[in-house]
Nucleic acid binder design. Structure first.
Length: 266
DNA sequence: ATGGTCGACTCTCGA
């Protein structure tokens, strides 16, 4: 099973890139973030033509998450089940990959998140981000066992370790690297997740995000590893490959994030 | 980076 996550920064602007990506990498499951489109305008047909079933939870202009799957899939939930802001529903989409005759084992839930960015560590949005990660941890606690198979993927807007960001000594006040953001992410991950990229590549300095606003970010290596594929141990043990695909960046109209992929032998 | 560039959208906001 090949799963990919990609913050596409508008699914409508990016659809040619998404189609190229699917044709080349052939992911079984593709989770995207920042679709920036309401559900009635979601371009599902382009993905359905490639053989994908599509689930999406969007809103106007901002946020928006979607999952495309070639394996049987059913939508489990959108947003939290704890109340909260309406925008949460376009940041969190849970689906379940269903068993097949070839894969008769238990279903695999997939939690696709677009974690709030936080704007600035002095902004209320940063507190909302920290709370959001705490609510996500509580969601894991309520709904699943860390001994079972579970995937949590998406744009987490957190670089977990110093090696996950360019010049970490200068990023202490960035909402994606502030100690409080890393602690909140770590607390959610400590529920029982393995960071698949870091597990397979303990020393690799590779990034999934280069800021659009820095014209020379890519050539200078000024990037961030803020997109992640997290798996419970039961699944991480079956992860044979995990890599960042920079190829869409070389084509016309890249997004500022690049896809992250992981292959599981099941 | 009190900067820069995108994308959606009504002009300014979010990243």
């Amino acid at each position: 099973m090949l799963i990919a996550t990609w913050n596409v920064n508008s699914i409508r602007a990016r659809m040619p890139r998404v189609v190229d990506f699917c044709e080349k990498q052939q992911p079984d499951v593709l989770c995207v973030q920042e679709t920036k489109v309401i559900d009635e305008d979601f371009p599902a047909a382009d993905l359905q033509q490639l053989g994908y079933d599509v689930a999406f939870a969007g809103q106007k202009s901002y946020n928006g998450v979607a999952v495309a799957s070639r394996l049987p899939m059913k939508e489990i939930a959108r947003g939290f089940d704890d109340g909260g802001e309406p925008a949460d529903a376009s940041r969190l989409l849970i689906v379940q990959i269903q068993p097949t005759p070839e894969n008769p084992r238990t279903p695999v839930p997939v939690v696709n998140t677009y974690v709030p960015q936080g704007r600035d560590v002095d902004d209320d949005a940063f507190r909302y981000k920290l709370d959001w990660l705490q609510r996500l941890r509580a969601l894991f606690d309520r709904n699943w066992s860390s001994r079972k198979r579970l995937l949590w993927v998406g744009d987490m807007n957190v670089a977990p370790q110093p090696m996950d960001v360019w010049e970490p000594e200068r990023r202490g006040n960035h909402p994606d690297y502030h100690p409080d953001a890393r602690a909140a992410f770590a607390h959610a991950a400590e529920w029982g997740f393995v960071d698949c990229f870091r597990e397979l590549h303990p020393d690799a300095v590779e990034y999934t995000f280069y800021d659009y606003r820095d014209r020379h970010a890519l050539e200078n290596g000024n990037g961030w590893r803020v997109d992640h594929i997290m798996a419970t141990r039961a699944l991480a043990s079956l992860c044979t490959e995990c890599w960042i695909d920079l190829e869409p960046r070389t084509l016309e109209k890249p997004s500022d994030h690049t896809p992250l992929l992981a292959r599981f032998e099941f």
